Every structure is written in C-alpha cells, then in structure tokens.
Measured scan of single mutants.
Amino acid sequence: QGEKVEGLQAQALYPWRAKKDNHLNFNKNDVITVLEQQDMWWFGEVQGQKGWFPKSYVKLISG
C-alpha cells in the first residue's frame, strides 16, 4: 500500500506513455499533482486524468 500525500506537485522530465490502462500519460514539463507514492511508482493527476507513472520521470517542485 502506498503513502497518500497532499499538496505535492512534480514536473515531468520526460514524456511518458501509458503501458497499461491504469497508467498516466504526460508530456515533458507537464505539472502533475502527486496523490500517492510507492517505491518506484507514483499515482497522480494531470489534465483531469489519473494514473500511475514511474517516479524517475519527474522531479518534485513543491511539498
């Protein structure tokens, strides 16, 4: 089970394309609201879409 977080935002360092239905698509420089953190994967929201993404593709910009 991941840790729920509030008020964290991350900026995409690279584009990410979903490999599964529960993954989040985003483009480089998109700002993602992080909702949950697990070891290597984070759950977040961007442009009304929610899903999992690899944390190595983003950098935290707040929180």
Rank of each mutant, 00 (worst) to 15 (best):
residue 33 T to I: 07
residue 27 N to D: 08
residue 15 P to D: 09
residue 18 A to E: 07
residue 28 K to Q: 07
residue 47 Q to T: 13
residue 30 D to G: 01
residue 34 V to S: 03
residue 15 P to A: 14
residue 29 N to C: 08
residue 26 F to T: 01
residue 40 M to P: 14
residue 61 I to K: 11
residue 63 G to R: 13
residue 9 Q to T: 11
residue 28 K to L: 03
residue 23 H to L: 10
residue 42 W to R: 01
residue 30 D to P: 01
residue 53 F to T: 00
residue 24 L to E: 02
residue 18 A to T: 12
residue 2 G to I: 07
residue 48 G to H: 04
residue 41 W to A: 03
residue 26 F to E: 00
residue 6 E to M: 11
residue 58 V to G: 00
residue 6 E to R: 10
residue 11 Q to A: 06
residue 56 S to H: 15
residue 25 N to S: 11
residue 58 V to W: 00
residue 62 S to M: 11
residue 23 H to N: 04
residue 33 T to E: 11
residue 8 L to A: 14
residue 32 I to H: 02
residue 17 R to Y: 06
residue 34 V to T: 01
residue 36 E to T: 09
residue 24 L to C: 07
residue 45 E to P: 00
residue 38 Q to R: 14
residue 14 Y to M: 14
residue 50 K to G: 08
residue 57 Y to E: 06
residue 32 I to V: 12
residue 37 Q to P: 05
residue 20 K to C: 08
residue 4 K to V: 08
residue 37 Q to L: 06
residue 55 K to C: 08
residue 4 K to R: 09
residue 5 V to W: 10
residue 20 K to L: 08
residue 35 L to T: 05
residue 31 V to Q: 10
residue 9 Q to D: 15
residue 32 I to M: 03
residue 52 W to G: 00
residue 5 V to M: 11
residue 21 D to R: 09
residue 50 K to F: 07
residue 22 N to K: 14
residue 21 D to M: 03
residue 59 K to T: 05
residue 8 L to K: 09
residue 62 S to I: 08
residue 46 V to M: 12
residue 35 L to F: 05
residue 19 K to A: 13
residue 34 V to R: 01
residue 13 L to I: 04
residue 25 N to A: 12
residue 59 K to A: 08
residue 55 K to D: 13
residue 6 E to T: 07
residue 3 E to A: 05
residue 41 W to Y: 12
residue 20 K to S: 13
residue 23 H to F: 10
residue 12 A to M: 00
residue 18 A to M: 11
residue 39 D to E: 11
residue 29 N to H: 15
residue 56 S to Q: 10
residue 59 K to R: 12
residue 41 W to V: 05
residue 40 M to S: 14
residue 21 D to G: 11
residue 26 F to R: 00
residue 42 W to L: 11
residue 45 E to M: 08
residue 2 G to D: 06
residue 44 G to E: 00
residue 57 Y to H: 06
residue 17 R to Q: 12
residue 14 Y to Q: 09
residue 43 F to Q: 07
residue 22 N to V: 05
residue 8 L to M: 15
residue 48 G to N: 06
residue 26 F to S: 01
residue 49 Q to Y: 05
residue 1 Q to D: 02
residue 28 K to W: 09
residue 60 L to D: 07
residue 40 M to D: 14
residue 3 E to I: 15
residue 11 Q to P: 00
residue 18 A to P: 13
residue 43 F to L: 13
residue 19 K to N: 12
residue 11 Q to D: 01
residue 51 G to D: 01
residue 7 G to L: 02
residue 54 P to V: 03
residue 24 L to S: 00
residue 38 Q to H: 03
residue 3 E to W: 04
residue 3 E to M: 05
residue 38 Q to M: 12
residue 62 S to E: 04
residue 57 Y to W: 06
residue 15 P to L: 04
residue 1 Q to M: 07
residue 23 H to E: 02
residue 55 K to T: 03
residue 31 V to N: 07
residue 43 F to G: 02
residue 19 K to D: 14
residue 31 V to I: 14
residue 9 Q to S: 11
residue 55 K to W: 02
residue 33 T to K: 10
residue 56 S to F: 06
residue 38 Q to V: 05
residue 29 N to M: 13
residue 61 I to G: 07
residue 28 K to N: 02
residue 30 D to H: 03
residue 49 Q to E: 15
residue 47 Q to F: 15
residue 26 F to P: 00
residue 29 N to K: 05
residue 41 W to M: 11
residue 28 K to C: 08
residue 3 E to K: 11
residue 3 E to V: 05
residue 62 S to C: 11
residue 6 E to K: 05
residue 48 G to E: 14
residue 51 G to N: 01
residue 43 F to Y: 10
residue 11 Q to T: 10
residue 18 A to Y: 04
residue 3 E to Y: 15
residue 17 R to A: 08
residue 63 G to N: 11
residue 41 W to L: 06
residue 33 T to W: 08
residue 62 S to G: 09
residue 50 K to P: 06
residue 6 E to S: 08
residue 49 Q to P: 02
residue 35 L to M: 13
residue 45 E to C: 10
residue 52 W to V: 00
residue 18 A to Q: 03
residue 36 E to Q: 04
residue 6 E to I: 05
residue 25 N to W: 03
residue 50 K to Y: 03
residue 15 P to Q: 14
residue 34 V to E: 02
residue 14 Y to P: 02
residue 31 V to E: 08
residue 54 P to L: 07
residue 27 N to S: 04
residue 2 G to M: 15
residue 17 R to H: 10
residue 11 Q to V: 04
residue 40 M to H: 05
residue 61 I to C: 11
residue 56 S to L: 10
residue 58 V to E: 02
residue 56 S to Y: 07
residue 42 W to H: 02
residue 21 D to T: 13
residue 44 G to K: 01
residue 60 L to E: 13
residue 28 K to A: 06
residue 24 L to T: 02
residue 53 F to S: 00
residue 47 Q to L: 06
residue 1 Q to I: 02
residue 50 K to W: 06
residue 14 Y to C: 03
residue 29 N to A: 10
residue 44 G to V: 00
residue 3 E to S: 05
residue 47 Q to G: 13
residue 38 Q to F: 03
residue 44 G to Q: 00
residue 48 G to V: 02
residue 3 E to F: 08
residue 20 K to N: 15
residue 18 A to G: 14
residue 8 L to N: 12
residue 14 Y to F: 01
residue 39 D to P: 05
residue 3 E to T: 05
residue 44 G to P: 00
residue 3 E to R: 11
residue 46 V to G: 07
residue 57 Y to Q: 09
residue 59 K to W: 01
residue 13 L to W: 05
residue 29 N to Y: 05
residue 2 G to A: 13
residue 1 Q to S: 04
residue 47 Q to P: 05
residue 42 W to Y: 14
residue 62 S to V: 06
residue 57 Y to R: 13
residue 26 F to N: 00
residue 13 L to N: 13
residue 37 Q to W: 08
residue 61 I to T: 09
residue 50 K to N: 14
residue 12 A to G: 04
residue 33 T to S: 10
residue 11 Q to H: 09
residue 51 G to F: 03
residue 41 W to F: 06
residue 22 N to T: 14
residue 30 D to N: 04
residue 31 V to F: 13
residue 30 D to Q: 13
residue 22 N to C: 14
residue 35 L to V: 04
residue 47 Q to I: 14
residue 46 V to Y: 05
residue 45 E to H: 15
residue 56 S to C: 07
residue 46 V to F: 10
residue 62 S to K: 09
residue 13 L to Q: 07
residue 2 G to P: 04
residue 15 P to F: 07
residue 2 G to R: 04
residue 23 H to P: 02
residue 8 L to H: 04
residue 19 K to V: 14
residue 40 M to A: 11
residue 49 Q to R: 13
residue 47 Q to M: 10
residue 20 K to R: 11
residue 3 E to Q: 14
residue 60 L to H: 04
residue 49 Q to K: 03
residue 13 L to A: 06
residue 31 V to C: 11
residue 19 K to H: 10
residue 57 Y to M: 14
residue 41 W to N: 09
residue 30 D to W: 04
residue 52 W to N: 02
residue 60 L to F: 03
residue 25 N to E: 11
residue 17 R to E: 12
